[in-house]
């Protein structure tokens, strides 16, 4: 398929170790992903009615049902996951790459990208992914008194943390940050329902403390809030307002 031809080394790598894996495990992966994470839920529920936003790397679309009063254009690299996500109405799910988003700039009230940018394999590409998300947001305006107003679009970004010594994986500070994480695919393969399993490996860059904020700043964003929740680092960011004019 010519439209999927990867072109750089990083593209080839991510295609083999991220995109193709998700394409194959889509259905099983989706069946294990149904519970929204609390901070994402809170972010979406706090949005004003009629907000329009993006879910970049929507997976099976589990966040599309959280707030029925907003409209979300969701995208994922995996066609099989988009097929699952597209069942959630009234939203739309499309196949797109987070480094080349097909959305107008300076338009959206919000964006979420949950457990996505840790699949990009170089620092430059991770920052580029944040840049693409921020670019889609409505810019904030400056104000004389407080310096800037937080009236622009907001993004919530979540990444897997390196510091998770109490998790099943047990990684912690100082460990290797670029890892291959196994996914054991279980399928009922015959009429007797005996399970057959096959193991896939997905590439992850595990974020250390402060790294997500650094990526956001490098991408021209301003971190409003950030924190750690259950083995993940998260941050809420806006586009950094420029002095003197609307950005």
């Amino acid at each position: 398929m010519t439209s999927n031809e990867p072109q750089s080394e990083s593209d080839l790598y991510e295609d083999a170790h991220v995109h193709q894996v998700y394409e194959q495990i889509a259905s099983h992966f989706s069946s294990t992903r149904y519970k929204p994470w609390p901070i994402v839920e809170r972010f979406l529920e706090a949005l004003p009615d009629g907000s329009v936003g993006l879910d970049v790397g929507c997976g099976n679309g589990k966040y599309l049902t959280v707030n029925p009063n907003v409209f979300i254009v969701a995208c994922d690299r995996s066609t099989n996951l988009v097929n699952i996500a597209s069942q959630h109405r009234p939203h739309t799910s499309i196949v797109a790459d987070n480094l080349n988003l097909p959305h107008p700039s300076s338009t959206f009230d919000f964006a979420i990208s949950i457990a996505v940018i840790h699949h990009l394999s170089t620092p430059g590409r991770r920052i580029q992914a944040v840049t693409a998300i921020l670019d889609s947001l409505r810019p904030s305006t400056k104000s004389e008194s407080s310096g800037y107003r937080q009236d622009g679009g907001k993004a919530l970004i979540y990444v897997w943390a390196l510091e998770q010594k109490h998790s099943r994986r047990g990684w912690d500070e100082g460990d290797e940050q670029d890892v291959m994480v196994p996914w054991v695919l279980k399928q009922n393969t015959n009429a007797k329902c005996t399970e057959e399993s096959k193991t896939f490996h997905r590439y992850y860059h595990l974020y250390c403390q402060g790294e997500l904020e650094h990526n956001i700043t490098a991408a021209g964003g301003l971190v409003l809030e950030s924190g750690y929740e259950k083995d993940n680092w998260w941050a809420i960011a806006i586009r950094k307002p420029q002095w003197g004019h609307r950005v």
Partner: peptide, 16 residues
Amino acid sequence: KIKEGIANFLLPSHLV
């Protein structure tokens, strides 16, 4: 292209 209701925005390598 839009197929079975799903639009695909992945770019060919020469356009990235």
